[in-house]
């Protein structure tokens, strides 16, 4: 998933008055309330910057580098504090897909979520697949279904393999 695609979903689905998270496609501003997260392109990669309210933690600023755009998006979606906050509001339920790389590290490479009643699977930077099988009802079903597809489809396998290899830094 690209950062601008994530932004569209955030704008559309992350609603409510007591939101504690601000997400932008740029460096997040220093002033503001709650957690402020920015996902943006760096000179040689991608970054996820996070500002927290002073006093809420032992750190006020945290940054992370990624060599793939999707890596930044899936890191954001996979972080439990964000996941919890998004789910408290009306963001669709989702599950981040992870693969274990050659070194035993779990690398997030995609996300499964239901959008407008359709199961969407984003993998790598730019690939979007839809699950058409109507027997897939729950998020768990969708993840299991996709896992079985990945194992059987060479093209998808290759996308995942390359992405996991490239983004092996985190």
């Amino acid at each position: 998933m690209r950062i601008h695609e994530l932004m569209k979903l955030i704008d559309k689905y992350y609603a409510g008055i007591d939101k504690k998270l601000t997400v932008c496609n740029d460096k997040p501003g220093v002033d503001g309330e709650g957690r402020r997260v920015g996902l943006y392109a760096d000179n040689d990669g991608f970054r996820v910057d996070e500002y927290t309210e002073p006093g809420s933690s032992w750190y006020s600023f945290h940054t992370c580098h990624f060599c793939r755009e999707g890596g930044a998006v899936y890191y954001f979606l996979n972080r439990s504090v964000y996941k919890e906050e998004l789910h408290k509001h009306s963001f669709p339920e989702y599950e981040v897909l992870c693969r274990t790389n050659d070194h035993g590290l779990k690398i997030p490479y995609g996300v499964v979520m239901s959008l407008e009643g359709v199961w969407n699977v984003y993998i790598g930077d730019e690939t979007l697949l839809y699950i058409k099988d109507t027997s897939v009802k729950t998020l768990r079903d969708a993840v299991d279904y996709f896992d079985s597809v990945v194992d059987g489809n060479e093209a998808i396998k290759l996308i995942v393999k390359r992405f996991v290899r490239d983004n092996g830094q985190i």
Partner: peptide, 9 residues
């Protein structure tokens, strides 16, 4: 590899 935190206060 990639995490940097600024220690607060």
């Amino acid at each position: 590899d990639s995490h940097m935190f600024v220690l607060d206060n």
